[in-house]
Amino acid sequence: MTHQEKRAWIMLVVSVVGYAVYVAVVLSRVDDGRLTATPYAGVLLWTVGGAIAASMLLEIGLGVVNPRASRVSDVRDREIGRLGDHVGQAFVVIGAVSAMLMAMAQWHWFWIANVVYLCFVLSALVGSLAKVIVYRRGVPQW
């Protein structure tokens, strides 16, 4: 497994776990069934920060566990990286357009922030998943 494939796996796992923790914490704070009144901003920021820190720690941990593993990237890694980023980027656009439409329709900011966050998570998740699948099954030829 190349260094870049390990990074894709880390991103995949951290995205899922981070968002699951966020959803669990926010839902545990719901009072009187009113989701929009639930404090979420602090949890969201801590989850994002925690996910970034966890990714870095996992990457360092893999380096410590297997110090002889190569960290070299080549043309195939770059092609797969571009493909994964391209796939994931669609969700960033969907998130931005959704946030714009929701703001214009005067939706509650709770939903706007959460749709944007969900789309960021989906971007990381789907992009990483695409990379892992292509690493395992092969680079598609169009």
Partner: peptide, 22 residues
């Protein structure tokens, strides 16, 4: 050829088409 061993494995198994140069 200046690539990782995993890329050679992928080429051998037909999971990656190298560039003409490679």
């Amino acid at each position: 050829i200046g690539v990782t061993r995993q890329t050679v494995i992928a080429i051998e198994q037909g999971r990656y088409s190298p560039s003409l140069e490679m």
